[in-house]
Design a protein around this nucleic acid. Structure first.
Lengths: 226, 226, 226, 226
DNA sequence: TATGAATGAGAGTTCATTCAT
DNA sequence: AATGAATGAACTCTCATTCAT
């Protein structure tokens, strides 16, 4: 095949040791950012990974690119879960399964929880939206078409619900990681055709995205750091 | 009265100018932290207040104590709202009114929103709990006694609901500050005696408090900054 | 007078200790930059001055502002010398005296020498030009009007001559600080009405300025650093 | 010839590919250092050469040795020019031609200009001196013997003149690369037997060399970088 | 008591040089 | 011999906190 190309791979594969360090860094970042937040220093991440800071900078242009790389992985998982839900025979159960699986996944994965709570930077936010918007819309519309979801519900309602449950899950992460299950039925009941009247219309898709993008900025104001 | 302020009063009241500086600092902190978060420097707060940094340190042991002082004020407002709710003729409406007023208040007050989302340090958390736990328990039990709230509901459920709605409100603060009203009826319906079954028991009061205390630490992980 | 102004001085005078530190910093910077170049770190400058780095940053926005502050002082001295030359009875001797005094001054002042060699950043360059262009032009034109300087000479020729002599002085600073005096008469002879023909026209004033501004950039390429 | 390169030749010639890499590196360094100065990183040089950094270190002990290797080549060219001048029929014209050719050469070669301005490290300086001292002395003495140059002139005067003109050329490199020609006749006139009196004796040969060696260190002080 | 100058640890980032592949 | 990943010291700049004025 490659009789012409002297240079074998255009998108260079990582050397074995480099690949290992990259993984070490991602794992360490997941841990360190998990424990002390994005305010933790890259020095700390590198130390935990057992490599020099310089190595971190060889793999990631800066701190935020490293953080983004982590969260990208988490979101991919969720997108896969949504796709599963779409394949379920019963549209309603497919949607419920998506919610449960998603929440279940974030229970054991703080990074994921954070992403779903919308607490992140603009670039990642856009990527998250790009990956998840389609499947979520499909899930909701499919359930609406089947008469399982009230017609005035919007895909962004699902996003809001995930967010709400994630906060509960996050707050109670250590005390009772299953606490979100207490509020899931309540929210699901509200999604049904006979749910209570909703006085305010839902957020449009892109408005929701922008809102979550700026949310992280507002949270930053609050979060104590030491 | 205390015109001769050289006389060391037993429980020394603040000199008039000192008291004024304290207020200036609190006001400035509310503004500055509100705009740029706790990451804003104390120099900025002091400059906005029109006093020197040293003055800030005379009044508050450190940055976080100043921040705490602000949020304390916000919580006092909420406690007052709860007391109002308890005086309502209809226990259910009193509870609903408390929720609405609380949420309404945080709509225009970021600091309050933050506190209600549990995004703060342990000391403040304890204080918040001390102030709010009593009234909230009373509100719920009074409504339960009147048959307006399901018996397996717990006061901590109210806390969880406030938290959930606050996150919605916070995320949508700019896009649609009333968005929380869309999800309030849903959550309220779940609180009624005929609400859907709840698979997981509520958190005990003190467990909830500890959970929220550590939440802020976890959120810190996430918050991107730039 | 200041019955209205509560705040006494609009252009705040420096506190005594702050003023002292500022001087310490300038002196240290002159030394450290003098020995190891602008590549020396501000930490080193601060250490030499006996203050913390933070203090350096309180007084000067960044490293280059500090460097600029130093060189500004040197140029002021030269401007004063030029003014002296203009007051001399004999226009030619005034000009010669300006050259000699200037070169003499830079003999004992490296910073000055550097500025006169045109080795500096754009902002400072502009300031230098602003301060010196006028007096130099006046010196030359006055001497030309008196028939003491050839008519095809330009003020920029004086600049070029200073530069040339400064380089000699700089190179020989330790070996023989008076070496520039060997080449001064040669260059002066060329400036007389009967000097040799000059095949290339002089640089216009602003062109000379721009040229010197970019010179520093080119030298930066060369200068070894450790 | 040496088709079997496994055979360890006594004075090991470079393998063909190694030799090629060496040239690539020199060419790249000339470009990169020329554009962005010695502050450019070796990574950049290596990237431009299309080889790994490691390869650069196989060929040159460190960054400065690579820089030195480049400038060595430039000086060789000048030595050749001096030899040409010595072959000229008219000693005076030979000397003038040397000056003109040398200056002309540096006009289009920044590296050369830098070396001639004495802006480099001690080792290179010694080498430059070793290569150029002889021919220059010969040029001057030959012209003196022919009565074309004043007897109190010294070979180091020629060095000083080159330096002076180089600085002019360097400063005006972009604005008017021929500007040095304006000052050449002036300096040449001073070299003639009837030039103006020179109040200070010339530098001895080795003193001049040492002076230039330390000059580079002093220039480093100045060079702003941004 | 108020001020704001001073401090210095620590953050993010770069790069000369080494060394495993 | 060549590669480029890894290292870690060094640099600029910020800011919570202290302390001389």
């Amino acid at each position: 095949m490659s009789t012409i190309d002297e240079v074998p791979a255009p998108a260079r594969a990582l050397r074995k040791d480099a690949a290992r360090n990259r993984e070490l860094l991602l794992a360490a970042a997941r841990e360190v950012f998990g424990e002390r937040g994005l305010d933790a220093s890259l020095d700390d991440v590198a130390r935990r990974a057992g490599v020099g800071v310089g190595t971190a900078y060889r793999h990631f242009a800066n701190k935020y690119e490293l953080a983004g790389a982590i969260f990208k992985q988490e979101v991919d998982e969720i997108a896969a879960i949504a796709a599963d839900g779409l394949r379920h025979d019963d549209p309603w159960l497919g949607l419920v399964q998506f919610l449960e699986s998603t929440l279940e996944a974030q229970t054991v994965n703080r990074g994921l929880r954070e992403v779903l709570m919308g607490v992140h930077d603009a670039e990642l936010e856009a990527e998250v939206h790009h990956l998840l918007a389609g499947p979520i819309i499909a899930l909701v519309e499919r359930a609406q078409a089947a008469g399982a979801v009230r017609l005035d519900a919007a895909p962004t309602d699902l996003g809001a619900m995930i967010m709400m449950l994630c906060v509960v899950a996050d707050v109670a992460a250590e005390a009772e990681p299953r606490l979100w299950r207490r509020y899931l039925p309540i929210l699901l009941a509200g999604l049904r055709p006979d749910g209570p009247a909703l006085p305010v219309p839902p957020l449009a898709d892109d408005v929701m995205r922008k809102a979550m993008s700026s949310h992280k900025q507002r949270l930053a104001q609050v979060t104590a750091q030491r």
